[in-house]
Design a protein around this nucleic acid. Structure first.
Length: 879
RNA sequence: GCCCGGGUGGCGGAAUGGGCAUACGCAGCGGACUUAAAAUCCGCGGGCCGAGAGGCCAUGCGAGUUCGAAUCUCGCCCCGGGCACCA
C-alpha cells in the first residue's frame, strides 16, 4: 500500500512558462471567471442545491406526530442568517461583505455535516420608495419590485448559497397579513395601545416625519425646513414591560460585548426610590423618582416637566398662571434637539405653590422647567442643587437655596454643620455640586454620619414605614412608537366605530390590504386618508359605518419577525407552524451591520419575548450568536453618491468575477472592522485566484484522470513531498480554526501560503501529491470563492466539493520531530539551532549554550539562570 | 463629560494562553520571457551602521512588572464609535 521510494518526477511536468507554444497554453489555461461562475451558478440553480426542507413537516406526514428525534435534529441543523436587506436601487458593497461573511459560515457548516437554513428576503416597505413616488409618480410597489429584481440578480451573480424557495418580501399581502396578525395579538394582550404623543412635523411638506427623517440639526431631510413638534394620537408597543428581561437575557446570548453594552445603555436601568411630595394646598401627592434618596435632606425645590398633566392645574389661580401657560407652550414647541441641549442655560417658571419634603416637613417651592422630562420617571423631580449638576445650575440661575448634605468621604468636614447653607453664593466655596458618594451631614441625627450606601437603604426603609416612598427601579427605555403617517407600509388593522370605539379587524378578515392611491403628496394628513373608499368601512362588531386607521406601521415591525416566517414561508393558515419553528429557531448565527445594534435587534428580541408569552413561540431569544461586520469605506470615507467614491459590486464582479470580489472583501482585514476598499488590493486577490486555477488546470492535465477523494492512500515519497503534505495539513488546521473565529483574512492567507508552496515545489513533488495539495487548497477556499474552488476541485478529483466533508487535519502531520530552537541571551535572539522534539530540558540548554553566536555572547560572562520553554526557546541570563 | 473600540513597515494587515515582531497581500526594486509592452514567472524587501559575519534601534508617548512585553499594570497623547439635562 505504502509506496516507498521517491515518486518519479512526472516526465510530462515541464515548466509551464516554457517558451514553446506559450500562447496556446496560456489560452488553454486562462482563468475565465465569468465562464466558470455562470456554469456553476446554473448547476446550483438547476439542482436547487441549497434548498432545505423542513424535516418536521415530513416526519409529521409520515408518522403523524413529529417530536421524535428532536434532539438529534437540533444537533444537525443550523440557521445562518444575514439581516434583511432594504431593496433600493442596487446592492452596495456593504451587502457584498455581509453575504460574503454569511455564505462562508453557511458553506463551512454544511460541510461540517449540518443541515443549513440560509434564506433571503426583502424589507420592501419604507420611506425611500415613497419619496421616490412623490417625485416621479411611480407607485412604490413598482419601484420596489424593480429593485428586488436587481437585488435577486446580483445576489445570484455573487453565487450566495441561498435557499430561494423561501424567498419573501414584507410588502406582499401574504406576508403583511401576518404582521397585522401579530399586531392584533399584541393589541389583545394590551401590548399595543394608543396615546397622545409628540411627533415630528414638517410645516413645509405638511407631513409627519419619522425620527430617521429628521437631520441632526432638527431639519426635514427632504426640504430642509425646521421640524416642529405636534401632539397626535399614536400607536405604541409596550416594550417597556420587557425592559428587565431584555436587559437580563443579554447575559445568555453570544453577542459582541459592545453591542450588549449599547443595549444595556439604551435600556438604562437605574435603581433608586419613589418618594412622595405632598402639596398641602391642593391636597395632591406627587411622586418623584430618585437614585439618590440619601440626598433627600438637600432637596430645596421641586420641578415638574412642562408636559406634566398637573402643571397647569397647580398654577391655576396663582399670580404665575399666565407665565406658566406661556412657558409651557413655548417648551412644547421646542424640538428635541433644542431642548435636549444640556449646555444651554436653565430656564423655568415658579408655579406659586409648595410641596412638603417628606423627610423633614419643609415646604419647598415648585417650578416648571424644561430640563425635566415627562417621559422619564414620574415627570417631576426633587431638586438637590448641592449634589446634582443640573439642579445646581438651576438654583444658581434662580437664587435658590443650596444645602450641602453629603461630605466627600474622609475630608474631615463631616461635622461642620451649617456649611454650604444659605442661598446660592454660599455653595461655591466647598466645590459644589458634589455628585459622588460620601457621608451624610446636615440631615437628621439618626442619618448623619452614615455613608451614602447605608443612608440610602436606611432612608428608603424609613420612607416605606411612613408610607411616603419605596424602593423603585426606572428605565430609560421608552415605549416603541409604531404608527407612521405614511403610505408605503403595513396598514394598522384597526377600525374606529362611533358606537364601539377602537375595534380590531378580526383575524379571519386579514389582510387589510394597502389600497392603491394616485397622489402621494403630503397634504397634512396621512396619504391613506385620501383613499375614501378604503377608509369608509363597516364596523366588524356592530356592522355600522366606521373608518379605518390611516396610519401604517413602522417598517421595523415588518423586520421584527421575518426570521420566523422563513421557517414556514408558504403557510397560509398561520404565520408559522410550531414544528417548523422548533426545527430551525433560534437563529444560530446572525450577521449584519452594527448600525442595527439597538433598534432592530432590540425590537426583534421584544417580539420574541412577547410572542413567547402569548404562547406562540417556544424560545425567548431569536439570535443565539451575532456577528457585526464593519463598514466598507473608500479613501477613508463612507461611500456616498455625493462624494463620488462609490464602488459598485456589479462593476467589480463584471471586471474580475464574484469569487475575486468576495475573497477580497474578506481578505482585506478582520471582517468586524471597517475596511478601506483598494482597487490595487482587489487585483492581488484576482491574481491569486488566477494562479491557483492555472496551476490546478496544469496539474489536472499532468496528473492523469481525476483520482477521487484526494487524500486517500497518499504517502510522501520524498522530503519535499512530506513538506507539502505537512503544509496542506497545516492549512487545513489553520483555515478550520480561523473560520471558527471569523478570521477569514488569515484563512485566505493560509490558502495563499499553501499555493505558494505548491508552485515553489511543483517540480520537486509528484503529480499526485501536487494534486492533493491543490485540491486541498480548493476545498479550503470553497467557502470564500465557491465557483473557482468547485471548478478546480472537480478538475482534480472528479468530485463536487460542496458534497465533500470538511477536511480534517492529521495531528501527526501537524507536529514535527525537529524544530528550530530559538536561542536567547538575556532575552535577545542570538541564534537558532535544530532541536529534536523529544529532547530533554538539559539537552536543550546544552544545545543553546553551544550555538555559535550564543557562545560569542557568553564569552567572559557568568550564566545565572536558564529558562527553557520546550518546543520554543531557551533563554540564558548572564551577568 | 461618561462608556466602548483602536494606534504595528510606504499601504491593508499578521503575531490565537507573556516566548523568533512585521505572516499574507498591495505598492516598490532587480531579473527571466517578449521586437516591445501587457500578462506571467523567479528573486529582494522595517530603519540605521557594517565589505561581511554581525550589531544597534523599532509595535502612539512615558514609566512599571518579568529571564523575556505589540501582548499585562499605571499615567498621558491621538483616531473612530455609542450615549449624553434620564433625576
Amino acid at each position: 500500500m505504502a509506496r516507498s521510494g521517491s515518486a518519479p518526477p512526472e516526465q510530462s511536468t515541464r515548466p509551464w512558462n516554457q517558451p514553446s507554444n506559450l500562447r496556446s497554453r496560456m489560452a488553454a489555461h486562462a482563468y475565465d471567471p465569468h465562464e466558470i461562475e455562470s456554469r456553476w451558478q446554473e448547476l446550483w440553480a438547476r439542482e436547487r442545491t441549497w434548498e432545505v426542507s423542513n424535516e418536521g413537516a415530513e416526519d409529521a406526514l409520515q408518522a403523524g406526530a413529529g417530536d421524535l428525534g428532536d434532539e438529534s435534529r437540533a444537533a444537525e441543523r443550523s440557521y445562518v442568517l444575514e439581516m434583511l436587506p432594504y431593496p433600493s436601487g442596487e446592492p452596495h458593497i456593504g451587502h457584498l461583505k455581509c453575504y460574503a461573511v454569511g455564505d462562508a459560515i453557511a458553506h463551512h457548516q454544511r460541510r461540517l455535516g449540518l443541515r443549513v437554513l440560509h434564506p433571503m428576503g426583502y424589507d420592501a416597505f419604507g420611506l425611500p420608495a415613497e419619496n421616490h413616488a412623490i417625485r416621479t409618480g411611480v407607485h412604490p410597489r413598482e419601484s420596489t419590485a424593480e429593485s428586488i429584481v436587481s437585488f435577486q440578480r446580483q445576489f445570484r451573480s455573487w453565487g450566495i448559497s441561498i435557499d430561494w424557495s423561501r424567498e419573501l418580501a414584507t410588502d406582499e399581502p401574504s406576508y403583511y397579513r401576518w404582521t397585522q396578525w401579530i399586531f392584533l395579538e399584541l393589541f389583545a394582550a394590551g401590548l399595543a395601545y394608543r396615546k397622545e404623543a409628540a411627533v415630528k412635523w414638517c410645516p413645509k411638506d405638511q407631513t409627519v416625519l419619522a425620527n430617521e427623517q429628521v437631520t441632526a440639526e432638527g431639519r426635514c431631510e427632504r426640504c430642509g425646513a425646521l421640524v416642529e413638534a405636534r401632539q397626535l394620537e399614536q400607536w405604541f408597543f409596550r416594550i417597556t414591560d420587557y425592559a428587565e428581561r431584555l436587559l437580563s437575557d443579554l447575559d445568555q446570548i453570544d453577542w459582541p460585548e459592545h453591542v450588549k453594552t449599547m443595549q444595556r445603555n439604551w435600556i438604562g436601568r437605574s435603581e433608586g426610590a419613589e418618594v412622595t411630595f405632598r402639596c398641602e394646598q391642593l391636597g395632591v401627592d406627587y411622586p418623584v423618582f430618585t437614585t439618590r434618596p440619601d440626598t433627600l435632606f438637600g432637596a430645596t425645590f421641586f420641578v415638574m416637566a412642562p408636559e406634566h398633566p398637573e402643571v397647569l392645574r397647580m398654577a391655576a389661580g396663582t399670580e404665575h398662571e399666565q407665565a406658566v401657560q406661556e412657558y409651557v407652550n413655548r417648551a412644547l414647541n421646542e424640538t428635541n434637539e433644542e431642548r435636549g441641549n444640556a449646555e444651554k442655560p436653565k430656564t423655568g417658571v415658579p408655579l406659586g405653590r409648595t410641596v412638603t419634603n417628606p423627610v423633614n416637613g419643609e415646604q419647598i417651592p415648585v417650578y416648571v422647567a424644561d430640563y425635566v422630562l415627562m417621559e422619564y420617571g414620574t415627570g417631576a423631580i426633587m431638586a438637590v442643587p448641592a449634589h446634582d449638576e443640573r439642579d445646581y445650575a438651576f438654583a444658581r440661575a434662580f437664587g435658590l437655596e443650596i444645602r450641602r448634605v453629603i461630605a466627600p468621604p474622609g475630608d474631615g468636614a463631616e461635622g461642620s454643620a451649617g456649611e454650604g447653607e444659605g442661598p446660592a453664593e454660599a455653595g461655591q466655596a466647598v466645590g459644589l455640586p458634589y455628585t459622588g458618594d460620601g457621608v451624610l451631614v446636615n440631615s437628621r441625627p439618626d442619618f448623619d454620619g452614615l455613608r451614602s450606601r447605608e443612608a440610602l437603604s436606611a432612608i428608603v426603609e424609613w420612607l416605606d414605614r411612613e408610607g411616603k416612598g419605596h424602593a423603585s427601579v426606572n428605565y430609560r427605555l421608552r415605549d416603541w412608537l409604531v404608527s407612521r403617517q405614511r403610505y408605503w407600509g403595513t396598514p394598522i388593522p384597526i377600525v374606529y366605530c362611533p358606537q364601539c370605539g377602537t375595534v380590531p379587524v378580526p383575524a379571519d378578515q386579514l389582510p387589510v390590504e394597502l389600497p392603491d392611491i394616485s397622489d402621494y403628496t403630503p397634504k397634512g394628513r396621512p396619504p391613506l386618508a385620501a383613499a375614501e373608499d378604503w377608509v369608509a368601512t363597516t364596523c366588524p362588531t356592530c356592522g355600522g359605518s366606521a373608518r379605518r386607521e390611516t396610519d401604517t406601521m413602522d417598517t421595523f415591525v415588518d423586520s421584527s419577525w421575518y426570521f420566523l416566517r422563513y421557517c414556514d414561508p408558504r403557510n397560509e393558515r398561520a404565520a408559522w407552524d410550531h414544528e417548523a419553528l422548533a426545527e430551525w429557531m433560534p437563529v444560530d448565527q446572525y450577521i449584519g451591520g452594527v448600525e442595527h445594534a439597538i433598534l432592530h435587534l432590540m425590537y426583534a428580541r421584544f417580539f420574541c419575548k412577547a410572542l413567547a408569552d402569548l404562547g406562540h413561540l417556544g424560545f425567548q431569544e431569536p439570535f443565539e450568536a451575532l456577528f457585526t461586520q464593519g463598514m466598507v469605506t473608500k479613501d477613508g470615507a463612507k461611500m456616498s453618491k455625493s462624494k463620488g467614491n462609490v464602488v459598485s459590486p456589479a462593476s467589480i464582479v463584471e471586471r474580475m468575477g464574484a469569487d475575486t470580489a468576495r475573497c477580497y472583501i474578506l481578505f482585506v482585514g478582520p471582517p468586524e472592522q471597517d475596511a478601506d476598499w483598494s482597487d490595487a488590493g482587489v487585483e492581488g486577490v484576482h491574481r491569486f485566484l488566477g494562479r491557483l486555477w492555472r496551476l490546478a488546470a496544469e496539474t489536472a492535465e499532468t496528473a492523469g484522470p481525476p483520482a477521487g477523494a484526494a487524500a486517500e492512500g497518499l504517502n510522501p515519497g520524498s522530503p519535499a513531498e512530506e513538506a507539502l503534505l505537512r503544509k496542506s495539513h497545516w492549512a487545513i488546521e489553520k483555515v478550520g480554526s480561523d473560520l471558527r473565529r471569523f478570521a477569514f483574512n488569515t484563512a485566505i492567507a493560509a490558502v495563499m501560503e499553501l499555493l505558494n508552496e505548491c508552485s515553489r515545489e511543483r517540480e520537486q513533488v509528484g503529480a499526485q501529491m501536487l494534486r492533493f495539495a491543490l485540491a486541498t487548497a480548493a476545498s479550503l477556499l470553497f467557502p470564500f470563492a465557491p465557483h473557482v474552488s468547485a471548478d478546480i476541485y472537480e478538475k482534480l478529483t472528479g468530485r463536487r466539493v460542496w458534497e465533500e466533508p470538511w477536511p480534517r487535519a492529521d495531528a501527526n502531520l501537524l507536529e514535527t520531530d525537529v524544530y528550530e530552537l530559538v536561542c536567547q541571551v538575556n532575552g535577545k535572539l542570538r541564534d537558532r539551532v535544530q532541536a529534536s522534539a523529544d529532547a530533554s530540558a538539559e539537552e536543550l540548554k546544552e544545545l543553546c549554550r553551544s550555538a555559535a553566536n550564543v557562545r560569542v555572547h557568553l564569552d567572559g560572562k557568568e550564566i545565572v539562570k536558564e529558562i527553557v520553554v520546550p518546543g520554543k526557546l531557551v533563554n540564558l541570563v548572564v551577568r
